[in-house]
Design a protein around this nucleic acid. Structure first.
Lengths: 206, 206
DNA sequence: CTTGACGGCTAATTGCGATTAGCCTATACT
DNA sequence: AGTATAGGCTAATCGCAATTAGCCGTCAAG
């Protein structure tokens, strides 16, 4: 990774830990292994570093969205995949989603940074809501909609069902972001949640 | 309200809007209507103002918790109250909880401040999780537990049921904190959520 | 009536942290 | 070889925001 990229990377790590204001340009430089003034050969200002992170993230999100909608759009193919899904598959799906959000390095750091900085700038708030609320609800809504179409799940209100599926995941995610030592118990809760969800919405009347 | 208290109040408002680092002592003084150096007649430092806010909030939370557990502990009395509860009551309960969290001035500002500052200090993170996750789940778990005892709701896992009740409320709360213009649509979603919740967990099999 | 604490003000001071100036080396292109 | 560019360094500079110094009026208690 070249210096310019490493600056973004280290800066993101630090911003996620302490927030923009509490990170000194010299800190970033240190981590990269250069002196503060050398940073200015790569970026015009500290703010420009922050902006570049946002910019890059936008790109990643876009790519991710495209990748998802390529699969997502092909509903007939997806329907095949989800035809034989059962409770254990659902648990696996939820857990993997959770672990991805929690452990994917870039994603995690970026989310924490946004959490801290969201009130500084309406745009950042919008990015947060889109990325961690609206997009997941929309994507999962599509998946769960397929399961409903397959008759695997039953509801007359897919979007509320999706909210019921996702919001506990979101809540547990914010808990683990604040306190990673609660990961294990959160995973347990997550599994219970999904099994209960399946009982509530599953085809068979229990 | 005396000056010392007004400083806390204005500081909290500003911290909630911009975060600790971006608020200048002079801003706080301005709002109070005095000059920055005069603040130091009341507090030793900017940090001391922040600490005093946390301190005061701790006190309020404690009082609130006591008030709740006075009612909560008297389960037989509460059970009377909840004996005749129906779906509309449940919607009202959820909406009021939501609106209280969202609109109570002190609560809202404090939550936003904590959201921003939670990663600066493990203690703050713990306060956040306790106040906005663990305590609500515990309190609502008790209420919903009463409804289960009354046979109004049916489940073999009250804590997951409570998670299903609360986590959508929490998610919508964070959305509205970021973007108040979504209040109306969130209230609509909230109502749908609770009606669906009641269908899922209500005594009668639909 | 006087004195001392309280709370306000103006005018420094201080210190820190972002940024700039200006120099130096290496490498790559001509 | 000759030169331009990229990217690093040290040593300022610059500006801002927290804090301190020191003064002053008010008012309650003795």
């Amino acid at each position: 990774m070249d210096t310019k990229q490493r600056i973004l990377d280290e800066a993101l790590t630090l911003f996620a830990q302490k927030g923009y204001a509490d990170v000194y340009v010299a800190d970033i430089a240190d981590k990269v292994g250069i002196k503060a003034p050398s940073l200015y050969k790569h970026y015009r200002s500290k703010q420009a570093i922050f902006d570049a992170i946002i910019e890059e993230m936008n790109g990643r999100f876009l790519m991710q969205a495209q990748a998802l909608s390529i699969n997502g759009a092909d509903a007939t193919a997806d329907a095949e995949i989800y035809k034989h899904i059962d409770e254990d598959h659902l648990v696996k799906l939820g857990t993997e989603l959770f672990m991805y959000y929690l452990n994917d390095d870039y994603t995690r750091r970026f989310r924490k940074m946004l959490t801290i900085e969201q009130f500084h700038d309406k745009d950042l708030a919008d990015v947060y809501t889109k990325q961690y609320i609206d997009d997941p609800l929309s994507y999962q809504g599509m998946l769960l909609g397929l399961l409903v179409a397959q008759g695997i799940l039953v509801t007359d209100n897919v979007s509320i069902m999706t909210l019921h599926f996702y919001s506990p995941i979101y809540l547990l995610l914010t808990v683990c972001d604040r306190d990673p030592s609660r990961l294990e118990s959160s995973l347990k809760t997550l599994e219970e949640h999904i099994r209960q969800f399946n009982k509530l919405y599953g085809r068979t009347i229990k």
